[in-house]
Design a protein around this nucleic acid. Structure first.
Lengths: 331, 331
DNA sequence: TTGAAAGCGGTACCAA
DNA sequence: TTGGTACCGCTTTCAA
């Protein structure tokens, strides 16, 4: 059994109040008393119970983060950035991966009761759950998720860079673009679609079609490519994320289709594999997203008031081989 | 302010003991009383404080996991597997990434005080810290880390598969192998070295040299390749992990060296990029490592006694283009 | 079937 | 400079 503050007090021949003072580095303690207590603490290997302390201080000294899954490189990086800053601020980090479980709302509520603040990202729980938690007074920051009420949020830029990406394709000679991925399942993807769509609308002679997919995995990308091979390839496949794009590339290679000669392919996220696949994509500041959320949350936990903050972090177009100049001779 | 059990008791006109009974689904409560309490709970939106509950029950209902970093795909997957099982078992998950911070021992000790059990992986804290925590009675499971005392451990198989990998290379005609990466910085790598070394020793005419690196990143791999280009290429570079191998591949490609014709390259981990780089590697059951650790830890937390358990999960050689048959004509 | 009360391990106020 | 003590929010025994 761990020694308690009472054991230490007895050992040092003082009251628990004095032990607490020494532990909290309070002023008014005689040097000799402090020494006696300290040596008792060392001797017994005493560590104050975080539970007792938290209960008395009415704070957890812990932050939570809720994400859909950790499998892609995306969320892992975000969580890492979050953890790093939180740790520096002296707070523990509780994680919760919802991976589509229907008990997610209860799990998130449970988590909310264990920490002083919560970051909620992406498709994890419905807005109603977020609102309920925030309205109970718990600081909440939304990450990679559209704004809800006056809750702070942190997002990566989507629309503008998506427009730049599409413009790049058009300038390289691609006219018939296809957007691969379902914009309705993710607000991020919806914005990317919007940006691409805007760029196409502005380019004379350019067209945009939409290829819905079942999820955002490699298989879904391959399947989308297969569908287009049957129904007629566009000039460029603008995929909602890298995994879709990688799957498409694989399928196109299997069929001997020239990329980017016959069709260009682009992704989003710049996962490590994108580099080796020569995939044109968009880089997000993933760690920075997590870090920003952690700082913002910390400010709120410390009681900082003020207008809701909505951070939008810049993203960067990364052009690689999968979308070089369109070979005009390909008719 | 959140309502407490006292508020609910007052509202329902009962004692806090009765409210507690209803909450804990205790038997001896009259149906009508239960109903009254339940409606009070619902009306006030009462959620019991996890802190108060934990203090009284003397348990955290939370598990911790300590890892060096989350940036590679390796740890993210392990943590995910861990979280998934822990969540199913009704336990929250606290994460701590040490990334080489020298305060790591204190941070881990702090974490240990916040949970009912702890998984410690890889190069995070010295054995002495592990021993101290375990000797305080906290269940600990070591993951991807050599055994310490009679503490449970979970590891991926290294030696045997490393031997198979090296044998494969030798059978493909490679004679002069070079092991890239420092075996002294990681027990996993040490075992891989051992396996390769054993296979080479058994093959007539085969030799093994060692190329130390500064870390295990892509850059270190490129640098190792550069060094070998200067001092003379071996027939095969057996890299301690995929990132080293990917860096080497990149550098070799830059210099126009034929892989695998002139030199074969292998990695370890089978990260997503390995597939696109056509890298021969070894696949580890990363999620399963985390899941196994979670189950083992849970058993100990539940008080299951018995001999220390040391699980070794099988790994799988994945042969790809980076180590096809050695072209004998390359003299 | 219910309530009173003693913890669980701390913090911090008020007196001494 | 110290000690006594009333909480923090809950669980659980013991009596009623």
């Amino acid at each position: 059994m761990q020694p308690t503050i009472r054991d230490v007090a007895r050992q040092a021949g003082v009251s628990i109040a004095t032990v607490s003072r020494v532990l909290r580095e309070h002023e008014n303690v005689k040097a000799s008393t402090r020494a006696r207590v300290m040596s008792a603490v060392a001797e017994m290997g005493f560590t104050p119970s975080s539970l007792g302390r938290s209960l008395a201080e009415r704070r957890h000294a812990a932050n939570g983060i809720v994400f859909p899954d950790l499998s892609g490189p995306y969320y892992a990086e975000v969580v890492l950035g979050y953890e790093e800053v939180a740790a520096e601020l002296g707070r523990s980090v509780l994680i919760l991966s919802t991976h589509g479980r229907k008990a997610a709302p209860e799990m998130v509520t449970e988590l909310a009761g264990r920490c002083d603040g919560l970051v909620i990202l992406g498709r994890t729980v419905p807005d109603s759950v977020v609102v309920r938690i925030a309205s109970r007074g718990l600081p909440v920051v939304l990450l990679a998720r559209p704004q809800v009420g006056d809750i702070d949020s942190v997002n990566a830029e989507n629309t503008t860079t998506a427009r730049a990406l599409a413009r790049h394709l058009v300038e390289d000679g691609h006219r018939r673009l296809a957007f691969v991925g379902d914009p309705t399942t993710s607000p991020d993807v919806a914005e990317r679609w919007k940006g691409v769509s805007a760029a196409v609308a502005r380019a004379s002679g350019a067209t945009l079609t939409h290829v819905p997919t079942d999820g955002f995995g490699i298989d879904a990308g391959a399947q989308a490519a297969r569908g287009l091979l049957d129904s007629g390839l566009p000039d460029a496949m603008v995929c909602a994320n890298d995994e879709l794009a990688l799957g498409a590339l694989e399928e196109l290679a299997r069929e001997g289709v020239d990329v980017p000669g016959r069709v260009a392919v682009t992704g989003w996220d710049d996962v490590m594999a994108a580099r080796y696949a020569g995939l044109t994509t968009v880089r997000q500041p993933m760690r920075e997203l997590g870090a920003t959320a952690a700082r913002l949350l910390d400010a709120r936990i410390r009681g900082e008031r003020g207008e809701p903050e909505h951070h939008i972090l810049p993203t960067e177009l990364v052009v690689r081989a999968s979308c070089a100049h369109h070979q005009e001779e390909t008719r």
